[in-house]
């Protein structure tokens, strides 16, 4: 492989990871507040459709992104609303919404299938894109990809370093303790449920407006929502690890094309399955790493202990449960 193709691969990995990062970080934010929004797969499709239809009819890509993010936020709000005010299980509502939003997207978007609509135009950053190697890989994309760089740094900073981020984590970990400190857990869950949904909506728009530009059935982003949910777990609810997971998945996805050339008997979807066994495996490790006996056993085995500690993170303690005083 020469330099050029390596650069192209890296460039496409960066671009392909962008919508997944939006979706996975959006879901991480929602889950940090203790709400699990299972509807991602449907939400992404619905917002992808919205983005395409809006920007097709108005000609404005920006308006497409804007409406898609509103749709994403709205779907997430339904989950939170059902959970807080009707006390219906978040999982049940999320699951029903997954299917409903998907079908709604296909239904409403049907007249717009296979039309040529506006796309986000590439915008190489002057000077930076001229840098050898990294210029093409990192700075010859469109503006959404650049926003994505800023976004993951900002969301990491927000959650780890700001008082608001601490309040968010506090609600997901121990809403009673948060309440005793004058924080209103329900309000926080509504806010961050919406915010997380907004980013999931942006992920959907990214698909229909540049990654897999256009609308049709299948659109090409089916299954991404589940992958984003899996990546949140894989990353242990930690923004930087989730982002690493996203790039890892994107790498697998892009390499799938090459693997297919090397092993022609394997269809490409086989490689796309790879993150799921990985997710299950990491969940088992998370469980194992918290087992007292295993901890005892690995006390003087440095390598294993290091490995266990890397995985020894846990979900927000109050994830998926309801809070009331």
């Amino acid at each position: 492989m020469n330099d050029f193709s390596a650069m192209m691969i890296l460039s496409s990995i960066i671009a392909a990871a962008c919508p997944i990062i939006f979706a996975a970080i959006g879901e991480t934010i929602t889950e940090k507040s203790g709400v699990i929004n299972l509807s991602l797969d449907g939400t992404i499709l619905l917002s992808a459709m919205t983005a395409f239809v809006i920007s097709y009819s108005t000609g404005s890509v920006f308006l497409g992104f804007f409406m898609a993010s509103l749709v994403g936020g709205f779907v997430a709000l339904i989950v939170v609303f059902f959970s807080i005010y009707l006390r219906v299980s978040q999982v049940a509502v999320g699951f029903v919404l997954t299917l409903t939003c998907r079908d709604l997207a296909y239904f409403i978007g049907n007249p717009y299938s296979r039309l040529l609509g506006p796309q986000v135009q590439p915008l190489p950053i002057p000077f930076l894109s001229d840098l050898p190697f990294i210029g093409t890989a990192f700075f010859s994309h469109n503006v959404v990809v650049y926003v994505c760089y800023i976004f993951f740094f900002f969301s990491w900073f927000y959650i780890e370093k700001t008082p608001m981020g601490h309040i968010l984590k506090a609600v997901g970990e121990h809403p009673h303790a948060a309440y005793s400190r004058g924080i209103h857990p329900h309000r926080i869950q509504l806010i961050y449920g919406f915010v997380g949904g907004v980013f999931v909506g942006i992920a959907g728009a990214s698909y229909s407006l540049f990654m897999k530009a256009g609308w049709g059935r299948p659109q090409g982003c089916e299954g991404i929502g589940w992958i984003a949910l899996a990546l949140v777990i894989f990353g242990g609810w930690n923004i930087s690890r989730v982002v690493i997971g996203c790039y890892l998945f994107s790498f697998l996805q892009v390499m799938g094309i090459f693997f297919q050339q090397w092993f022609p008997t394997f269809p490409s979807p086989v490689f796309q399955v790879a993150p799921f066994p990985l997710m299950i495996f990491s969940l088992v490790i998370i469980h194992v790493s918290q087992n007292d006996k295993i901890r005892e056993w690995s006390k003087d085995k440095n390598v294993i202990l290091f490995f266990l500690n890397r995985f020894s993170h846990s979900a927000p303690a109050h994830l998926g449960k309801r809070f009331h005083v």
């Binding site: 506090a170 121990h174 303790a177």
Partner: peptide, 16 residues
């Protein structure tokens, strides 16, 4: 204890 076990001492001190 009404605190956040997953967070550090100083973070617990600051929340709220």
């Amino acid at each position: 204890p009404m605190d956040f076990p997953q967070l550090s001492v100083i973070d617990n001190f600051m929340i709220g």
